[in-house]
Design a protein around this nucleic acid. Structure first.
Length: 735
DNA sequence: TTAGGGTTAG
């Protein structure tokens, strides 16, 4: 300590003016020393010296110490708070410094607590510096009511036209997804700087309003406001979401032409744009030329390869990572999960668990739960739920939605409801996930009730909520209710129906046999009907055996998606249902000519945490012999109760009767069912996940088996859930 | 007498 003071040539305090004449303290050598401080020990020594000399009792000097301890790299906020608490009368600067520091932590709520203390304890009123920090904390908390309250105080205190205050308000409202209010703040500003524009552009881009974001960028240029690197990050985010590679390349050259500072963040944003737009070549070229790279650069590349299905390149990159943090693992897991490879996602999760290389975080758990949902892997999903509870992982709305989705999609609606009821904070995703869960299990009325409760809870529905709600109406045949919600969407909730909503509505009408109404709706659509709309028509035609309309819908569907084999299969089913076997063969030939193969049926069933998959006619399973014996036994018992195979949905025109029966008998869900009967205990439900829609014959078999073997069978097909119990199915034979 | 707001992955 003495050495330090000697080195700084600090004279004793008596040589300096006293507290009464504090204008000179800024030049006091001890205070100057604070700025040069670089270790916690130094800071400690200065703190001690200040206490000894009495300098600490000067508010200005104390505020310098607070600033250094709260905002520097080498000190902790905890220490700063302790120092603060020793100050007798901290000045506003000290209060602001702590409010600022807390706003940047993971617990911005402390900023609020300090603000309230400030109002009680400080002689001075909050000033124009206080509010931006406070608004930043509110933005981080995404607490709209809180932020609105602070906005009110800002107006009252007369700071609403302060540039910094207004900019933080724009950011805050965008963060709360209130883009209209953000825009209003922006428009009402007497002066704007580049940050005002950036906050708007980034806010819009983050909230998927990509065209609006780009519009702001062009407006900014037109108004001669020079964009900087942060602006371009927002523009690139928009490009990446627009999947517009051409524009992305233009932005890249814009950076070079306009001499915009190339920061690491900007470089990563460029990489991200290229990978999202699908050009790994551009991304790689840029990545290899980057002088400085961080973990984000690596994971962006990794996720890019994986998203495009180049898993070898992704894995190579992952293995060559200089250090793997949880984000790198998450990139690999979520890439597999999001590209429809849940099995691989789960394998990587298991690898992570075994290696103990990093601790799974909330993102890991959400991705893995989603992989479980896709696989129907309820054991692992349940294990993750236990893990969350055991490790005390904070259940945020993301995780809650993922759990509800997992339990719903794995067929355990009750568990999904238990999770839903156990939380008190429910955002729109949580409500929407639960509505979807009820819908897919055929509980349309409950889904509607829940939607009403959501209104009571004052949670605003989104476009996704309505998709789930309409789909719930469709699965339960609730035509009038569906119509009503469809109309309310735009009128009451100001959400314009998208092509997805139209598809749901067409589905609702079509399934109910109101094919004319469905076609009328399509004709009056304000946008071009997409594949989902024609798919819904085709599905309804299958149900109601309308050959002419099916042909029309199939043609339309193939115009949009020439490689859609589902379209051929459905049309073929329509022909078969009407006994038009010649048409079936013709169609089969067309499929062969265009090189399309029927996606092989695949069903899986989970036993003791291991998911067993079966293809049509599969005999590769180790227990294959036993499975086929069981199938024979099942066939015998089915026949004894008068079951006759329904062959109408066989794609192939198989000549011989016996062959036809064989083909049905070997359907993957039948194999999975037999395996479930062998391996699962009598009280355990058999949960099967099938990649295609279940055929009518297998549906009847499952109903009978549930009765004959006194088993609960839960079958998830491509479209919905079927709960078989005591000879009945929850879909009421309506799917 | 000190100062502030906006940015990249999953």
């Amino acid at each position: 300590m003495n050495e330090l003071m000697a080195a700084a040539k600090v004279p004793p305090l008596s040589n300096f003016p006293t507290v009464n004449n504090d204008r000179y303290f800024a030049n006091h050598p001890t205070i100057k020393l604070i700025d040069q401080c670089s270790t916690p020990q130094h800071l400690n020594q200065i703190h001690a010296q200040m206490l000894r000399s009495g300098l600490f009792f000067d508010p200005f000097s104390a505020s310098k110490l607070i600033q250094s301890s709260a905002l520097s790299q080498f000190s902790t906020l905890h220490y700063a708070q302790k120092v603060f608490d020793q100050i007798h009368q901290p000045n506003l600067y000290s209060w602001n410094t702590l409010i600022r520091a807390y706003a940047s932590t993971s617990q911005p709520i402390h900023s609020l607590a300090m603000f309230i203390r400030l109002l009680h304890e400080c002689d001075e009123m909050p000033n124009k510096f206080t509010y931006p920090f406070l608004i930043k904390a509110s933005a981080k908390l995404a607490d709209l009511r809180l932020g609105k309250g602070i906005h009110g105080m800002v107006v009252k205190a007369g700071f609403s036209s302060d540039l910094f205050v207004a900019n933080s308000l724009i950011h805050f409202y965008a963060e709360c997804k209130c883009l209209d209010v953000a825009c209003r703040v922006f428009s009402s500003m007497p002066e704007r700087d580049v940050v005002s524009w950036n906050s708007m552009i980034n806010g819009l881009a983050q909230n998927d309003c990509v065209d609006e974001a780009l519009e702001f960028f062009h407006r900014m240029e037109a108004e001669n406001m020079t964009p900087n690197d942060v602006t371009i990050v927002g523009v690139l985010t928009a490009c990446g979401k627009k999947l517009d590679l051409k524009f992305g390349r233009w932005v890249h050259s814009y950076i070079e032409k306009n001499g915009i500072t190339m920061s690491l963040i900007l470089s990563n944003a460029i990489l991200d744009m290229y990978t999202k737009c699908g050009s790994m070549e551009d991304a790689r070229l840029f990545f290899d030329a980057m002088i400085e790279k961080d973990i984000i650069s690596w994971t962006t590349m990794l996720a890019g390869y994986a998203r495009l299905g180049n898993f070898n390149a992704a894995r190579d990159l992952f293995d060559s990572l200089p250090s793997k943090d949880i984000a790198a693992w998450n990139a690999l897991i979520s890439a597999y999960e999001q590209s429809g490879n849940p099995r691989e996602a789960i394998a990587v999760f298991n690898e992570l668990q075994l290696s103990k290389a990093a601790k799974p975080d909330e993102v890991t758990l959400v991705s893995t739960l989603s992989a479980c949902s896709q696989m129907g892997a309820i054991d692992l999903g349940g294990w993750i739920h236990v893990y969350i509870e055991k490790e005390g992982v904070r259940l945020n709305c993301h995780l809650v939605s993922a759990l509800i989705d997992m339990y719903s999609k794995c067929g355990d609606l009750n568990k999904a409801l238990v999770v839903f009821r156990s939380v008190d904070k429910r955002d729109v995703y949580v409500w929407s996930a639960m509505i979807a869960g009820l819908g897919m299990h055929g509980c349309g009325r409950d889904a509607i009730d829940l939607f009403m409760k959501m209104q009571e809870a004052k949670v605003r529905p989104t476009s996704v909520t309505f998709t789930n709600l309409l789909s719930a109406c469709s699965h339960s045949g609730l035509v009038e209710e569906g119509r009503e919600f469809f109309h309310q969407m735009g009128k009451v909730y100001k959400i314009m129906p998208s092509v997805e909503h139209y598809a749901c509505m067409v589905d609702i009408l079509g399934r109910a046999g109101l094919l004319d109404d469905a076609m009328e709706l399509i004709q009056n659509m304000p946008m071009t009907p997409g594949a989902s709309v024609w798919g819904a028509v085709l599905g309804s035609c299958k149900l109601h055996r309308n050959v002419d309309l099916a042909e029309h819908a199939c043609n339309k569907l193939l115009e949009i998606e020439p490689q859609n084999h589902g379209a051929y299969i459905l049309l073929s089913n329509v022909y078969a249902n009407s006994g038009k076997w010649d048409k079936v063969s013709e169609l089969r030939k067309v499929m062969r000519d265009v090189g399309l193969k029927k996606e092989p049926g695949c069903s899986s069933v989970e036993v003791n945490g291991i998911v067993h998959e079966f293809l049509v006619g599969d005999n590769t399973h180790p227990l294959s012999r036993k499975i086929y014996l069981k199938l024979d036994e099942m066939a015998g018992r089915l026949k004894s109760v008068g079951y006759v195979a329904n062959k109408s949905q066989l794609l192939q025109m198989v000549e011989e009767e016996e062959m036809q029966e064989k083909a049905l008998y070997l359907h993957s869900e039948r194999l999975a069912l037999a395996f479930g009967l062998i391996t699962l205990g009598p009280s355990q439900p058999i949960r099967i996940v099938k990649n295609l829609r279940v055929c009518e014959d297998c549906h009847s078999v499952a109903k009978l088996v549930s009765k004959l073997y006194d088993r609960e069978i839960v079958l998830r097909d491509r479209y919905r859930f079927h709960h078989f119990n005591e000879g009945r199915c929850s879909c009421m034979d309506y799917w």
